[in-house]
């Protein structure tokens, strides 16, 4: 199964809005909760209450500072999980076939019973989207919640990834990026959705919506200036204006 499908019917993936992500880590923990209890081995934690706690997570939220040429530095919260690449190097390097990309929807998965835990797939992923589970010795990665999105035991509205369902800010979107008419595709088109490390040639399915331009309130000054034209310079003058203005109100004397 290590070969990549020629093409997939659908390209299911996530669209992450960097303009609204507040960096709350809700998606991180929800993912940990769902995937500990569901698909494959639980996501274990080593030294859980000790000096060097370290566990398996399939989704992690970084944060970056961006210093534009002019103006104040900005901060961007940056969630990252598997991007379900079309040209997924993690699949082709896998010697056992445990890593594969599903032909029907493009989801990249690890079949844990075939995985020998060699780690090569994680080496090959430029995004750091795979983590070896230290208790189980198998490779873990975002499953795009495959056991939710088709799950007939869940109400239809809940057949979305756990991280998407939980995101309080609504910064995560799930859908078929192969369908230009899907909500996610439209979002990507509207907001200029981008690829991470396009030069790696992995063709990620997941897209990131860039932050909108910031700190531009002063650019509007000329337009806004008339709004602030003083009605009077002195408190006395102000009261005169007030009297006239009140007259113009419904029920005023005028």
């Amino acid at each position: 199964m290590t070969q990549l499908p020629q093409s997939t019917q659908r390209k299911l993936g996530l669209v992450i809005d960097l303009d609204t992500c507040v960096g709350c880590h809700a998606c991180v923990i929800s993912c940990k909760g769902w995937n500990t209890e569901n698909y494959g081995a639980p996501l274990s934690d080593q030294d859980a209450y000790g000096a060097d706690p370290s566990g398996t997570f399939l989704n992690r939220v970084h944060s970056y500072e961006v210093q534009p040429e002019q103006g104040a530095a900005q901060l961007v919260h940056f969630p990252k999980s598997c991007l379900h690449c079309e040209d997924a190097p993690c699949v082709t390097v896998c010697p056992t076939g445990a890593s594969y990309k599903r032909a029907e929807d493009g989801i990249v998965l690890v079949n844990e019973s075939d995985c020998i835990g060699c780690g090569l797939c994680a080496w090959s992923c430029p995004y750091g989207a795979r983590e070896m589970d230290m208790a189980e010795g198998v490779m873990k990665k975002c499953t795009l919640c495959i056991d939710r999105i088709y799950n007939e035991n869940l109400p239809e509205i809940d057949r979305i990834p756990s991280c998407v369902r939980t995101c309080p800010a609504g910064a995560r979107h799930f859908g078929d990026l192969a369908d230009p008419e899907s909500d996610v595709s439209k979002l990507v088109a509207e907001r200029g959705g981008m690829d991470l490390m396009p030069e790696m040639g992995t063709k990620p399915v997941n897209k990131y919506l860039p932050p909108r331009p910031k700190d531009r309130i002063e650019d509007q000054v000329d337009v806004l200036a008339p709004l602030l034209a003083p009605v009077a310079e002195e408190p006395q003058g102000f009261l005169g204006w007030l009297d006239k203005a009140l007259d113009k109100l419904p029920g005023g004397r005028a």
């Binding site: 992690r60 970084h62 944060s63 970056y64 500072e65 961006v66 534009p68 900005q74 860039p210």
Partner: peptide, 10 residues
């Protein structure tokens, strides 16, 4: 958008 610097790790 500018010079990017890693701030808080995840």
């Amino acid at each position: 958008r500018g010079k990017v610097r890693a701030f808080e790790p995840p």
